[in-house]
Write a protein that binds this DNA or RNA. Structure first.
Lengths: 200, 200, 200, 200
DNA sequence: TATGAATGAGTATTCATTCAT
DNA sequence: GATGAATGAATACTCATTCAT
């Protein structure tokens, strides 16, 4: 799908994407208003439909863009030198927390999009995300020292447990608007416990 | 709050509640259409507002009704005889899975309501639910044999890990529309692993 | 038009009429709610339509009732012993002011009804009122000493001028919620001036 | 407040304003239907809200427009050369009657708006109008020859009497749908009488 | 006779999308 | 390419009136 938004100058494109992410993040897909977006972005009503065809394609385009931004950031910042999974996980969580300060709009948008009220939107988002997640998981596993684990054959389960728990801690932390350092401490706490639990 | 829906015949009431739960579950509070509900339920425009006063009270009424249904079911079916946490957890997950076949609409509705896009709705729902959840957690902990754990002092972390992981397995199972038995097997698998992990 | 309201016990009838007058007076015909009336009067939804057929006939019935009440009061209290028009007028205005304290609901209802927003209602009301007003005017003129006037042949004009001016003073007084004694003083003031103006 | 109605072609704008005035005049603010207006004016549902934002702003816009039209007409046509109040009054009433044939809808609308049932609307209208009325009264009094009156010190009363009576004659004339010439004759009659009554 | 549940046309307002300029 | 006026289906909610009990 080649959208005309690609032909727009970088500056204008960023302006539009930022305004749209803000609107979608704060209202969700359905209640987000194209009108609000064009007003904030200073473009015309017609333009947005020329750039993106319709609201739905705009949402997916922005999602893909946001996700790429985040994935790139993580891949740049994650520490893959160590073969120790929990060190990698720790650096991943560090990146996630840093993203919250470096790209707050993008993060809010992505987190909101994952649990959007609109069933069609949500399932499409989950589909697009799982590809991306699978690639990330692969990276995580490459060059891993599985000798560190008590039960190396349970690696897949362990990864699910880690991801479920740490995602939940992050989500709950944000929902109760704890500040970054509190969330960070909690996460470190759990990672220490995981080390005792899973490692020899 | 005594709503007139209480005076309606059981058959009609169930019809209305089911249609409403379906609509709310698939669209979320804001996008759900009272029009769609009355059409599916075969009642008139005026009736729904006579029964529930307005959309918001309808939502809360249905939520309370649904939650009671589920909580009653769980409390009736959960096995609290054993002092073994994982046996209790296993029976809780069994109940949850059974609920998915016995009251699928109710479960979809409740799961969706918890993360509704509408901020006012969401916070009211969480308020109503947290009471219920805290009571359930208490029940879970009462008469528990903590000597079974390698690290009894980490009980709170353990519970979070169990809950996060098993909730995630259930959610992913539903999202990828696996059938019940597959989800069940996966959950049993994880619970076995938890036993090795956490118990002496 | 024989309405079934006539068959109802006096006590119940008064209750209904009072509640209806209050509702109509405060909201006007269109915005007045039959629901509010039955709730206040403690009768059933069906009853009101059995008694009055519909909202419009209810309004006219109440109007006729209210107007009769007021006309009777005025005819009982007006001083027709004197052949002096301005003395009669003065006693008429006194009665009007007294009505405001003795039958406030009835007066508010009548005053509001005369300028109702609903064009059909308003013209019907004006028609019904003019009959009543003509009869009152006749009474006013009977046994009048026209020798008191500088221009007896202008009597009709004089009456119009008196009525227009004093009605306006009363209306403005009520609209700016002056209290009765202030309105009374203003009216007396004008009547004195009229005496100089019209009388020999 | 710059409303988009200003950007519309004169022909369309007039069509819309006329239809709206007709609807508001015959039903009052609350019962007037935006639906009826757009149907009569042949525009789309969305258009009216794009032009006026909402029903209330539409009403005020139309009111201001109508009042300006009428005030301009009167100030253009009133004869202020003479220091004789009754000549000024006569020319004012002439203007009013001419307005009834030249701008009948505008007049009906304005007369109705002044006594609208909706309290909020009415008080806003009166506020907007009192400025305008006070200015008019000032104009009326400027350069007036008060030596013409028998009782110059009663000027304020006289003005109230004139205004109350002539307004009433006009209103009654319209309500009984007399034609212009009959109303005109009656008014002239009264003004002649006022001359005898108030002037030396 | 009295009830009140049921009805459905009505209300103002929103908003993604189209299209003539 | 860019604009923004125009569209109309959709929203929650009201209320006089009917009618089976």
């Amino acid at each position: 799908m080649n959208l005309l938004i690609e032909n727009v100058t970088q500056e204008k494109k960023n302006r539009i994407l930022n305004c749209a992410m803000e609107e979608f993040a704060s209202k969700g897909y359905d209640r987000a208003s194209t009108n609000a977006i064009i007003k904030k972005a200073g473009i015309s009503k017609g333009a947005i439909f020329q750039y993106f065809m319709n609201k739905e394609l705009m949402f997916y385009y922005i999602f893909d863009h946001a996700e790429k931004q985040i994935k790139d950031y993580i891949l740049d910042n994650i520490d893959l030198n160590s073969p120790d999974l929990l060190i990698r996980v720790q650096s991943y969580m560090d990146s996630m927390l840093n993203l919250l300060t470096d790209f707050p709009r993008t993060m809010e948008f992505i987190l909101k999009a994952r649990s959007d009220d609109n069933i069609g939107i949500k399932s499409e988002i989950l589909k697009r995300e799982s590809d991306s997640y699978n690639k990330l998981e692969e990276v995580f596993k490459t060059g891993l020292d599985i000798e560190l684990f008590k039960s190396p054959k349970e690696l897949d389960k362990i990864i699910i447990i880690l991801k479920s728990t740490l995602d939940k801690l992050l989500e709950d932390g944000l929902n109760s608007s704890l500040d970054k350092s509190e969330i960070y401490d909690t996460i470190c706490d759990y990672i220490s416990y995981f080390r005792k639990l899973f490692y020899i």
